[in-house]
């Protein structure tokens, strides 16, 4: 078996892990499986595309590729703005839809259903605005460099791995060392008690939406950079995201990241062993195995 699958799996897994962190955080604080999370990836990717396109329109200088990478400064600047905007999108969605349903105190599954409807509307809206034709941030081609051990990667791919590492460490520190991270864990354990202890639960919920959407946006942009940007980008990643969040254990950030890597590596291995057309079934197999053998996941608390 070609060792290159390790590299492909790590990259795919890093992106799945980033998205899964958002799923697992919203799941543990808001207590529902958000089917619209995949759309945050797609929207992030398209927002960055639109912004970097307009920046390039203003100053062609900014689209010149930065040395080993395939994109110019317009993309990182656009990425920052897109992260903010995707966060705002999530907050808006919470304000008009989820927040209202929550305050009505209905069953959890109504929230799941609403997220299902929202994901349909958001995805088709992208298809309406940008059509379903694939788009790219840059037309530049990249040559993969040898890394030894039979592995190759393009500079863009190495950058994606580096960015993921930095972001995940930053999120982990934020959640474990900062005041707001402690409040988040308190809310996820027991929202009522946390409220009594003086934690502003609404602020925590807004924070979680923002962080989850921001991570999704980063994952979406990097997926768009390495593969292509399509309206179905997020939808196609949704099952891997759920599989990773459940395998890692709901609420566990390191778990989601490690599980994301496991899902990514298994997908890459399956592509080599079984064939690329079965790639999408790998997450389902993992999901079924986890639910059968260890429903609380690798690092999850027992239900």
């Amino acid at each position: 078996m070609n060792p290159q699958f390790i590299m492909d799996g790590l990259i795919a897994g890093a992106l799945i892990g980033l998205g899964a962190i958002g799923v697992t955080l919203t799941y543990s604080i808001l207590r529902f499986a958000n089917f619209a999370h995949g759309e945050f990836l797609s929207w992030g990717a398209y927002l960055a595309l639109a912004i970097s396109g307009s920046i390039g329109f203003l100053s062609a200088n900014l689209t010149k590729p930065i040395a080993p990478f395939s994109f110019g400064w317009s993309l990182p600047i656009a990425a920052l703005l897109a992260v903010l905007l995707t966060g705002v999108l999530a907050l808006a969605l919470d304000a008009v839809l989820f927040g209202r349903l929550r305050s009505r105190g209905g069953a959890v599954i109504i929230l799941v259903m609403a997220s299902f409807g929202a994901s349909l509307a958001l995805r088709s809206l992208l298809e309406f605005l940008f059509t379903s034709k694939p788009a790219y941030y840059t037309k530049a081609l990249q040559i993969a460099v040898r890394l030894g051990g039979g592995l190759r990667a393009t500079p863009d791919q190495l950058l994606v791995l580096g960015v993921t590492l930095v972001v995940v460490i930053a999120i982990h520190l934020l959640l474990t060392r900062s005041e707001i991270g402690r409040s988040m864990r308190a809310v996820s354990e027991n929202p009522a008690l946390a409220g009594i202890a003086g934690i502003d639960v609404r602020r925590i919920i807004r924070f979680v939406w923002f962080i989850g959407a921001a991570l999704a946006c980063i994952a979406g942009i990097m997926t768009g950079l390495l593969v292509q940007i399509r309206p179905y980008l997020g939808h196609d990643l949704l099952l891997p995201l759920f599989a990773a969040a459940i395998l890692g254990g709901i609420g566990s950030v390191p778990g989601a990241m490690i599980a994301g890597l496991i899902v990514g590596l298994s997908e890459a291995a399956a592509v080599q062993l079984v064939g690329a057309e079965w790639r999408a079934a790998v997450s389902f197999v993992i999901l079924v195995l986890v639910l059968l053998l260890r429903p609380r996941g690798l690092f999850g608390r027992p239900a």
Binding site: A33, F35, A107, I246, V288
Partner: peptide
């Protein structure tokens, strides 16, 4: 309750 939702989503994909 939402694990059933996720699993049926997986069934649809598969």
């Amino acid at each position: 309750s939402d694990y059933l939702a996720i699993a049926t989503f997986g069934v649809a994909v598969t």
